[in-house]
């Protein structure tokens, strides 16, 4: 392997090359003081370089005992399957939707949800932020939520409504399934649910990038965070950019960091996206915003759309789920299964 791979500065790399150290193996049996003298870097820099070199060297091809880690950092497919099966999904509160999603929103993955204005993106975002807190005893994650609001569309009153309905549903479930009231009494209050949603209001794309960089530290301090909802990932990137190439680079950097977060803390990342019109093959069609290269970055992509009288969710992209669509509805109590009968309900 070449020293290009080492995370060192350009000038250090230049010095190493001019001193003749072009491969990692050439660095493997040299002392730091020799390296410092020959390539004219300081002793401490030389020590760092050697540390990086030995690290990436052993990370590369060295065999180790035990079949679980032949390659450091790798995991075999069988183990991955077991791990995936043991993961709890975050329910969307609509059984049909959960069904096509393979149980709900997946942890360790980035899920993008897009749709036209008013289709229920923010509603789904709030619902997920509430549902992630359903305790283990009820088949939930018992986690906390981070809600990153870039548009100012988070409505705390609505979150309260959804939280109240969620608690009602849980006590209903309790009465129905368990019958013994003491076993798993609900000590959760709507206020507790709201208290477990960490709300960040973002006013520019710089803040958005900064926050996503900072999340790593924040979540290390709040280990029980199990979902990060970004509503919407698009807004600031749609307004403030002239240089599209820069936008693509910055966005993909951000997506990578989110993916890393999802894996590292085994949490779900939900990105809400807006739609735009796109001109293809002579006609205008709706498409999710941020362009083609962005569409590669998310693991799962769900598009919400109107189909006749009903709201539908469609799995546009997923490595593990087949493409399917399911109806859902947005009710006073939150996201629910679609009531197929189109009756007109009188409110209030």
């Amino acid at each position: 392997m070449e020293i290009w791979r080492l995370p060192i500065s350009a000038s250090q790399r230049g010095k190493l090359i001019s001193a003749g150290y072009t491969t990692l193996s050439s660095l493997s049996s040299i002392s730091s003081s020799d390296l410092a003298r020959e390539s004219k870097v300081s002793e401490s820099e030389a020590l760092d370089i050697l540390k990086f070199a030995s690290h990436s060297h052993s990370g590369g091809w060295e065999m180790s005992s035990g079949n679980c880690s032949i390659f450091e950092g790798a995991q075999n497919a069988w183990d991955m399957l077991h791990e995936e099966e043991s993961l709890v999904h975050i329910t969307t509160s609509s059984a049909d939707l959960d069904n096509i999603l393979g149980g709900g929103i997946h942890c360790k993955e980035v899920t993008e949800i897009g749709g036209v204005p008013g289709i229920g993106k923010t509603q789904l975002g709030i619902q997920i932020a509430v549902n992630v807190q359903i305790p283990h005893g009820f088949g939930g994650l018992g986690g906390k939520a981070i809600y990153i609001d870039t548009e100012g569309s988070f409505m705390v009153e609505r979150a309260l409504q959804i939280a109240e309905a969620c608690i009602e549903d849980m006590s209903e479930y309790n009465r129905f399934i368990r019958k013994d009231f003491q076993a798993c009494e609900i000590r959760m209050q709507p206020k507790d649910i709201l208290g477990n949603i960490f709300y960040f209001r973002i006013c520019s794309y710089t803040e958005q990038i900064a926050l996503i960089n900072y999340l790593d530290k924040f979540i290390s301090e709040h280990k029980d965070v199990k979902v990060v909802v970004v509503d919407s990932v698009t807004f600031h990137f749609r307004q403030d950019f002239d240089d599209m190439a820069l936008r693509t680079r910055v966005l993909s950097g951000m997506a990578l960091k989110l993916m890393k977060l999802a894996k590292k803390f085994s949490l779900a990342v939900v990105l809400l996206n807006q739609v735009t019109t796109k001109h293809t093959e002579g006609s205008f069609q709706l498409a999710l915003a941020l362009g083609d290269s962005w569409s590669h970055t998310c693991t799962n992509r769900i598009v919400l759309y109107w189909n006749g009288n009903e709201r539908y969710a469609y799995i546009d992209k997923s490595p593990s789920l087949r493409s399917a669509s399911a109806a859902y509805s947005v009710t006073r109590r939150g996201i629910r299964n679609s009531s197929s009968s189109c009756k007109r309900i009188k409110m209030m």
Partner: peptide, 11 residues
């Protein structure tokens, strides 16, 4: 990033 990121509030 830590300095630029806005502080959080719970809902």
């Amino acid at each position: 990033s830590e300095i630029v990121a806005p502080p959080y509030q719970t809902a």
